[in-house]
């Protein structure tokens, strides 16, 4: 024993050395990881700070009147956000009205009705399509969809609703092809795969026992879905829909191509309009004056604020769903 302690001191110090080195490396690694996590927070705060400071000149010039002014006249330095805000909200609303029921329908089809062989390929196809860049939807919307829509939908609808109260106003005016309604339709096609994918994932967490019990009591497929599966998955479905709403609100390229870029609010849904993101994308590089740039940045701040609220709600709902399903 004594021999060993006598002959090993160098080995011991070497070991202590390497342990110390490893310890130092350990701390360094930990600090790097922590710093990276802080970086995420820093970016988030940086975004808010940059937008607020960039928007300051516009806020000083227009105050809260910015939110209630429709006029947007760069040549006279008058800027109001009402037109873009209206376009953003209305086009997203149109998209949601179409995409939510259809998306849920697709998800139900995939989880319950689709033959097993087709289930995976269709599921994969939908997930891949959710990843197609939005500029592709934009270019397709501009060249293919808008002309078709103008000829085969807008013109007959405008003729049919002419003179009818409410509908005549909502679908009045000229058939331009592009406009707020077209933007809403393109958006709905864009967020459809997204809603389907999330809803399908949530529906798959419904315990089989629940459905089997319901079938055992003699329920039809519709009753099992409507009264058992969907209520069980409700929080997740709503969360997924809100996530999609966040996408629709902030979507830029698909909308910019087809919304028409007109800063005005018209009663007709077919009329050209603009959205917050489209206004920024179209005009930012042309904005020559300080106030013009600042107004566009303030629009960005408004968009960030709206999507932040929507996305926060979505996250809270999806988290609750995850907890409930015991993940």
């Amino acid at each position: 024993m004594t021999d060993i302690t006598l002959t090993e001191p160098s080995a011991l110090t070497a070991r202590a050395d390497s342990a110390r080195k490893a310890g130092a490396g350990d701390t360094r690694f930990r600090i790097t990881a922590f710093a990276a996590a802080m970086m995420v927070l820093l970016i988030f705060m940086g975004v808010i700070f940059a937008l607020v400071s960039g928007a300051m000149p516009a806020f000083k010039a227009f105050g809260f009147g910015f939110f209630t002014t429709e006029a947007w006249r760069p040549s006279r330095e008058i800027f109001g956000a009402l037109g873009p805000i209206y376009g953003t909200l209305v086009s997203s609303a149109i998209a949601m009205v179409i995409a939510v029921p259809v998306g849920i329908g697709v998800a139900i089809f995939l989880t319950e009705l689709c033959p097993r062989v087709l289930r995976r390929p269709i599921g994969i196809a939908i997930e891949l399509l959710a990843g197609i860049p939005s500029i592709i939807y934009g270019i397709w919307g501009l060249f293919i969809f808008a002309p078709w829509f103008q000829l085969h939908v807008q013109e007959p609808v405008i003729l049919a609703t002419e003179g009818v109260p409410v509908l005549g106003t909502l679908f009045g005016g000229n058939a331009y092809g592009i406009g707020i309604f077209t933007a809403g339709l393109i958006l709905s096609i864009m967020i459809l795969p997204f809603i389907s994918a999330v809803t399908r994932d949530v529906l798959e967490t419904v315990p089989g026992v629940l459905k089997e019990a319901s079938y055992g009591l003699g329920s039809t497929q519709w009753e099992v879905m409507w009264k058992v599966a969907l209520p069980y998955a409700r929080t997740g479905v709503v969360g997924g829909a809100m996530l999609a709403l966040g996408r629709a609100l902030g979507e830029t390229m698909a909308v910019t191509f087809v919304i028409g870029n007109a800063h005005r609010i018209e009663p007709s849904l077919f009329a050209p309009g603009t959205s917050i993101s489209a206004a920024i994308a179209n005009e930012f590089t042309e904005a020559t004056t300080e106030l013009y740039t600042a107004s566009l940045i303030e629009l960005g701040l408004i968009l960030f604020f709206i999507t932040f609220i929507v996305l926060s709600c979505a996250q809270m709902m999806l988290r609750r769903m995850e907890k409930a399903s015991g993940k």
């Binding site: 975004v47 960039g54 979507e251 830029t252 920024i280 960005g300 999507t307 932040f308």
Partner: peptide, 10 residues
């Protein structure tokens, strides 16, 4: 999920 155009403004 934040709008990428806002990140561009940043």
């Amino acid at each position: 999920s934040a709008p990428s155009i806002v990140l561009g403004l940043f």
